[in-house]
């Protein structure tokens, strides 16, 4: 069946078209985050008499989050490389490691948010905090969705092994995961580092 079909587009090309479209989706998501960043930048000094970033941000916390996420980006790359070795076992292993690191990242972040809320710094306290929670929280929501996606993909890999379709899905997920780390680089820089300066 693989040879006798003609869509005007070769079968392998069909998968690369899905990847091409995903790059464009990522561009759209970059602009979404850019808008959240712009909002944060504009509102970052609007403390309304409430807590400031220097008072709130916990250095070990965000440093840990940063290295965990960076490592998970690296391990997701190692997972994708397993495609070339055609090793489903290796692929799933590295994906699971990536997922665990992702969960750890979320754990740290939820802990951070909870501590802030308990100290009286909520989304309703000031415009600065609204912007902070929304920007960082949107990133966290993207990570959560990515983990759900990863779980589904792991199940599909376990059932079907490495095929052109599952390969493409791994490539797309890994692009998404790297993109999330790229966004975090800027959150780390613009929100946390500038906040504690």
């Amino acid at each position: 069946m693989a040879h006798a079909v003609e869509t005007g587009v070769k079968h392998e090309d069909h998968e690369s078209i899905k990847i091409a479209g995903f790059w464009i989706f990522l561009v759209q998501d970059v602009l979404l985050f850019a808008t959240l960043f712009a909002t944060y930048v504009v509102l970052r000094n609007h403390y309304a008499g409430g807590p400031t970033p220097k008072e709130l941000f916990d250095v070990p916390g965000f440093v840990a989050e940063t290295f965990i996420l960076l490592t998970s980006s690296f391990t997701s790359g190692l997972a994708a490389l397993q495609l070339n070795k055609k090793s489903v076992g290796g692929l799933i292993t590295w994906l699971v490691i990536t997922g665990v690191l992702g969960l750890a990242f979320l754990g740290f972040e939820i802990n951070e948010f909870t501590n802030m809320v308990q100290e009286g710094a909520t989304i309703s306290t000031s415009a600065f905090l609204s912007a902070f929670f929304t920007l960082v929280g949107t990133h966290g929501a993207h990570v959560t969705l990515g983990l759900g996606w990863m779980l589904g993909l792991i199940i599909q890999l376990a059932r079907r092994g490495i095929t052109p379709v599952t390969s493409r899905k791994v490539s797309v997920l890994s692009l998404y995961w790297h993109f999330l780390d790229a966004v975090w680089i800027f959150i780390f820089t613009v929100v946390y580092l500038i906040g504690v300066m």
């Binding site: 392998e12 790359g77 070339n84 052109p164 390969s167």
Partner: peptide, 28 residues
């Protein structure tokens, strides 16, 4: 339905490791 001409995923372990180490430096 296996297709034998799947594209090779680009990159190598070496390039990922280099990227990872550079990123760590650029974070520190």
């Amino acid at each position: 339905m296996h297709d034998d001409h799947s594209e090779k995923h680009p990159g190598s372990t070496v390039s990922y490791v280099i990227g990872f180490l550079l990123s760590i430096v650029l974070t520190i």
